[in-house]
Design a protein around this nucleic acid. Structure first.
Lengths: 202, 202
DNA sequence: CAATATCTGTACCGATAGGTATGGTAGAGG
DNA sequence: CCTCTACCATACCTATCGGTACAGATATTG
């Protein structure tokens, strides 16, 4: 329906930028979670009236999914890049450090949208909770595959299972997100990363 | 006002047990979080009408605080006990294992109330969020003090700072809570614990 | 220019949120 | 026994929730 934004379309043109709006909405969801972010919060942050939001993105759930998508392709894209590091240890190092930085970047809310977006919620938000759970599982699976490759390259000790390592690293990532959501700052998270790295089995 | 429950009081006696009610409410808050748990959810789970709930516990916020208190003194009391283990390693081991078990106990919701009770939320729930944040910080501080004692007993390597170790262990605990909230089961969490223990600096 | 298509702003919708007034009810004190 | 007190149940309150109808505004199309 409203696919293109460069080709001239008929009718009154949209008075705001879709991606900017999505960024604003993202920040609200990030800070307050899916349930805690009201439509009034969102419209106020975006600077657009309610019907315009609905026309552009659909209902609240659709808006969240689009914001999540933008989160994954924007702030959280470091995960993809980190997996391209040459060694398993370098992957982990970069992953943890980038996460620590993202979770505590001053210009956006503390923590991680995939964790605090909808960790426990009412029935109405349950599909969002499931989506975020799936998202986290997908990230973990990507790590596991990367570690499987590392294993095949002799880059991992024989007593370390890729799936276990991936789950462990994911656990540290989620834990850091909780810490950051509670206001723990970057330097402290860096020391967590240091501890995690120091104790790595490779 | 309604302090005692054993001394016979005047008037019609309460038709439900305060602690049982609190347990039921706790489960709802645990599963849905503070915001996601509606009064209707709570009254339905407790099996009591709304005014009775208000008379017994005060408003929703007060009810949550009482449920949290019960959580800390009940299911989460393992934390206190674990700190009494003789060595730092034993403390950590017991803490992580007990947390893994509590987070995945079949008879209650997955995860940890202190984490998913209100990690990110709207303004109305912010005081609860702060309380939970403070709760987590308190637990972390207790660990830190325990590790300081360990250090003074020569039970910790010289290059390990008690505060850093405590924060790291707390991070793993929170991460496990997120995993469990997403449905990860006990055996997988046990492998996370195994990884964490294997890589411990002592 | 008109005709048409899309967006904006106001004002509103029903449903539900948390919270409470009120009148009936059950037990203790006298 | 009656009274007094506290609790129970229904029914209701206001505020806000997510979502939308409608009319005016602004652009392209012909």
């Amino acid at each position: 329906m409203e696919r293109n934004k460069s080709p001239k379309r008929m009718g009154r043109p949209r008075s705001f930028d879709i991606d900017r709006a999505l960024d604003r909405a993202l920040v609200v969801f990030w800070r307050k979670g899916y349930e805690g972010a009201s439509l009034s919060d969102l419209t106020k942050a975006v600077g657009v009236n309610r019907p315009s939001l609905y026309a552009a993105f659909g209902d609240k759930e659709a808006l969240f999914r689009k914001a999540l998508d933008r989160y994954l392709k924007g702030p959280a894209a470091y995960t993809q890049e980190a997996l391209r590091e040459p060694t398993a240890r370098a992957v982990v190092e970069r992953l943890l450090l980038a996460a620590a930085d993202l979770n505590t970047a001053r210009r956006n809310p503390g923590g991680c949208l995939m964790v605090q977006g909808a960790l426990a919620c009412g029935d109405a938000a349950d599909s969002i909770r499931q989506e975020l759970t799936a998202c986290r599982a997908a990230g973990e699976a990507a790590m596991r595959r990367r570690f499987e490759r590392a294993k095949s390259e002799g880059d991992l000790p024989p007593n370390v299972k890729p799936a276990d390592l991936a789950r462990y690293i994911a656990t540290v990532l989620y834990g850091m997100a909780v810490q950051a959501a509670g206001g723990v700052g970057r330097s402290k998270l860096h020391r967590v990363v240091e501890m995690a790295l120091r104790t790595l089995p490779m």
